[in-house]
């Protein structure tokens, strides 16, 4: 295995473009090292992107949007004084990944590029309409998060392409997000079901909604029927029931060691309701 630590994304991209065999980018390494250690994936080329300038920065842009460096850890996101006030769901989703120790290393970008359907940060990013900047041989392109994973363990990134930034939209007024996952224990598990909700209100009424589900299909789902179920409502019981039904209907899960089809389908609805309530309260400015 060859180890590289380039000083720019262009250099990283060029290294990846000319590499043969398996290439992996190393950010937090919490997935890459596990795969290496278990002989699941031993890269021929490992490109550590942490020595590139700015990758550890969380920046608020002039328009209120955020740029999060690709090596920013979960711990750094949680500790940021403002990011979590605006995007609590996104920050909490990241914070749910692994232990305190894992939080010291794990990144949004790694969580996305590992392309697990059960990744916690991805549904939250999808709900928040996060995009990523991708640097490749032909320059930089911006891609919505939901277009990155294509199947378990696979992404739409081409050879020579490397994620170079995470772009979080401006929160704007009367908005709120939330992410909940179900795990059997209280910590240290992979999501059996995850659900992200991002809302905007006009008064009591929901005017914008994005609902995402994790671990219930080969990739994270952005479920339009869930959004429809609550748009224009005040999140009354009927809307919540419709939301739960739409979430369950959208599921296309598998039976595996972490949960059954029936369980995931049922709990997706339960979590959608619970997350929506939290996001709604946050959008109203309540503490939740």
């Amino acid at each position: 295995m060859d180890y590289h630590s380039p000083a720019s994304f262009a250099e990283a991209s060029a290294l990846a473009a000319k590499a043969t065999g398996t290439t992996r980018f190393l950010a937090g390494g919490t997935d890459v090292l596990v795969q290496l250690r278990s002989d699941i994936v031993t890269p021929d080329t490992l490109i550590d992107i942490k020595k590139i300038g700015g990758v550890r920065d969380i920046t608020r842009n002039a328009d209120g949007s955020w740029t999060i460096g690709v090596a920013v850890t979960g711990a750094e996101m949680s500790e940021h004084p403002e990011l979590g006030r605006e995007w609590p769901g996104l920050v909490e989703a990241m914070d749910l990944i692994g232990s305190t120790q894992v939080q010291g290393r794990a990144t949004l970008t790694g969580n996305l590029c590992n392309a697990s359907p059960a990744a916690d940060a991805v549904p939250a990013m999808v709900a928040a309409e996060v995009t990523i900047s991708v640097t490749g041989p032909d320059g930089v392109r911006e891609v919505p998060v939901e277009q990155i994973p294509t199947a378990p363990g696979r992404t739409s990134l081409a050879k020579g392409e490397v994620v170079s930034a995470v772009n979080v939209p401006a929160r704007g007024a009367n908005g709120g997000d939330a992410y909940l996952r179900f795990i059997p224990r209280t910590e240290m598990d992979i999501a059996v079901v995850g659900c992200g909700v991002n809302l905007r209100l006009d008064g009591e009424t929901i005017t914008e909604a994005r609902v995402s589900l994790g671990a219930v299909a080969p990739t994270v789902l952005l479920v339009e029927d869930c959004a429809k179920a609550i748009l224009g409502t005040t999140l009354d019981e009927a809307a919540l029931d419709a939301l739960a039904a739409a979430a369950s209907a959208a599921c296309n899960p598998i039976n595996d060691k972490r949960g059954t089809i029936e369980f995931r389908t049922e709990v997706a609805g339960v979590l959608a309701k619970r997350a929506a309530r939290i996001a709604y309260a946050r959008a109203k400015g309540e503490k939740a």
């Binding site: 190393l26 390494g29 090292l33 550590d48 942490k50 305190t100 120790q101 894992v102 010291g104 290393r105």
Partner: peptide, 13 residues
């Protein structure tokens, strides 16, 4: 100063 698992970090890092 940051708590990590040393099994999840490469020696070269």
């Amino acid at each position: 100063g940051r708590l990590v698992c040393s099994c999840l970090m490469l020696g070269v890092e």
